[in-house]
């Protein structure tokens, strides 16, 4: 029972992060019909900028550096859309997938070239104080992670439903041609959406690397887990992507916990992905956004 609770906490904390990345992937997919494979790499790169540049070289306090990392993620997200995805978008889904894969490889390699292959232990705005619950404990960072993801998901939901930009994002997701006709600044809104996605990736990167000190290859696995979550909703549903992220976190944690064989968590997640793809009929539509 004690072990169960421990795995549950770890699973929920990691699952919340997968959910956050998945939400970013889905929001971007809905407005541009592009699956951003660089989402995880943007998060990792932002976290490394946070650790080595903002806190290390510039000596910023952790809260300021956190804000800086989120801004880095937003700029990277917007930049990928404006300079990498948009120029190739008219050439179809394969071109955009290849382009975002290119960004993934570039950012990963850049991380190694700039800061070496070490797995840094990075700081967190939340302390690692243990809060004891029964015989197990939860760190404040873990609670903070879950809390932040809930706040961000709620904020995203509110923005999409209640703000002008949010309603504009929803309109573009439904019919980009009609959004242009009505006079919405479609290009700016799409770029902004990628910035939001990049910022959420940065938050996820900061939270995840603090919890799991891993090499770059394993970090890309965060994205794969999140893609499983996003696929659950056909890349189109925010609530399903969120729930999927938490589910993947739990599967991973319990699988690894009760069956401590190397790679068992990954295996289970891939089986889950296969199952999701076989069961769900609404595959993502990877057509080019119609220009009308």
């Amino acid at each position: 029972m004690e072990r169960f609770f421990g795995y549950l906490v770890t699973g929920l904390a990691n699952g919340a992060i997968f959910a956050l990345v998945a939400l970013g992937v889905v929001v971007i997919y809905r407005v541009s019909r592009v699956i951003n494979l660089a989402q995880g790499a943007i998060g990792v790169f932002s976290a490394f900028v946070f650790h080595y540049t903002l806190m290390g070289d510039l000596g910023m306090p952790v809260a300021v550096a956190t804000a800086g990392a989120i801004l880095t993620g937003a700029v990277l997200g917007a930049g990928v859309e404006k300079f990498v995805v948009r120029p190739v978008q008219t050439r179809g889904a394969l071109a955009t997938l290849t382009a975002t894969t290119g960004v993934l490889l570039l950012l990963t390699e850049l991380t190694v070239q700039l800061w070496g292959p070490d797995n840094p232990v990075i700081a967190s705005v939340f302390p690692d104080t243990l809060v004891r619950i029964g015989n197990t404990g939860v760190t404040v960072h873990q609670i903070g992670t879950a809390g932040i993801v809930i706040v961000l998901a709620g904020g995203l939901y509110w923005m999409l439903a209640k703000t002008w930009v949010g309603v504009g994002i929803t309109a573009i997701a439904q019919d980009p041609g009609a959004a242009r006709i009505v006079g919405l600044p479609v290009r700016s809104i799409v770029t902004l959406t990628w910035a939001i996605g990049g910022a959420s990736a940065a938050v996820a990167g900061l939270m995840y690397i603090h919890l799991n000190s891993l090499d770059q290859i394993s970090l890309t696995f965060v994205l794969i887990s999140s893609l499983v979550a996003a696929a659950l909703g056909g890349f189109n549903s925010l609530p399903l992507a969120g729930a999927g992220g938490v589910a993947v976190g739990l599967i991973f944690s319990f699988g690894q916990g009760y069956q401590p064989v190397a790679g068992i968590g990954q295996l289970l997640v891939f089986i889950a992905l296969l199952g999701v793809l076989l069961v769900r009929s609404n595959k993502p539509q990877l057509d080019v956004v119609s220009e009308f």
Partner: peptide, 10 residues
Amino acid sequence: PEGRRVFPEM
């Protein structure tokens, strides 16, 4: 526009 193009899920 032709075909009205209202936002259907809104």
